[in-house]
Amino acid sequence: MTDDADGVEVEIEDEDGAADDPAEDVEAEGPTLVERVAEYDEDLAEEVADVVSDRNELAEDVEDLEAEVEDLTERLQRVQADFQNYKKRAKRKQEETEERATEDLVTRLLDVRDNMTRALSEEAGDTESLREGVEMTKRELDRVFEDEGVEEIAPEPGTETDPHRHEVMLQVESDEPEGTVAEVYRPGYEMGGKVLRAAQVTVSDGSGHDGEGGEDE
């Protein structure tokens, strides 16, 4: 039941004689409701028509948004799947690259081993030939290291020690300034700026160093 513009109560019944339920689907009952309200109040009927129109537009917007969400969800799933596949491909490629690099290095070291084998096969009494064979093997190995960017760490005596590149073994008597490198016990190696093995060195205790600018006795 509702009031018309003149304050008169108007009961709106459906075809079965029951009063309309506001909770019913306005999209289904809307057009009938508008026509019946228009019989009593045209202005109110226009408002009802606007409400129904707005409701229909909102329903369409919701459908569009749901479709857009579904589309974005599918696209996101495809992107995630593509990314996972990319990671797998990148990992396989890295493993293959490392494997090829290792194979190449081993192949070049085979020549070094062959030279060493030939040197050891020389007659035991031919010391000079054995020495030449070992030197040739070392030169071949040095070429392999050079090709790989491997550099020797062998600081000159008197060089300041570097804890990142030098491993101090002990302190010895030396003419070098105190705390500097006295002698290289075992050279180190670095590759591409990364220390593969630090050089083992002895350091001077400064006992034989007079220092710069000292007076002659």
Rank of each mutant, 00 (worst) to 15 (best):
D210V: 14
V26A: 07
E35S: 15
D147A: 15
H166Q: 09
E47S: 12
G211A: 12
T97L: 10
R36Y: 03
S53H: 03
M169A: 11
D126F: 10
F83D: 11
K91T: 13
V181A: 07
F83C: 00
Q77R: 12
E68S: 13
E24F: 05
Q200G: 00
V52F: 00
T2S: 10
G133S: 03
G149K: 06
G125C: 00
E122G: 14
A81W: 11
N56L: 13
A119I: 06
L65P: 01
R78H: 11
A154F: 08
E47M: 11
E160S: 06
P163S: 11
R131N: 14
A18F: 09
V79F: 09
R113Y: 06
V201I: 13
N115M: 12
G125A: 05
V34S: 10
E212D: 11
A49L: 04
P177R: 01
R186W: 03
D162F: 03
E66V: 13
V69H: 13
G30I: 07
T32W: 01
G206H: 06
T117V: 15
A5R: 13
G125K: 01
A23D: 03
S53E: 09
D61N: 09
A28H: 09
E215R: 02
R139P: 02
A59N: 14
N115D: 07
P163M: 08
N56Y: 00
R55A: 12
D3K: 11
Q77L: 12
E60W: 02
E132D: 14
A19M: 08
M191G: 00
T32F: 02
D14E: 07
V203S: 11
M1C: 07
V106Y: 03
D216C: 01
T159A: 08
E152V: 15
D61K: 14
V201Y: 02
G17C: 09
L65Q: 12
A90I: 01
A67H: 10
V195D: 02
M191E: 08
D82L: 11
E215L: 06
E46T: 13
R92N: 03
R186L: 11
I12C: 01
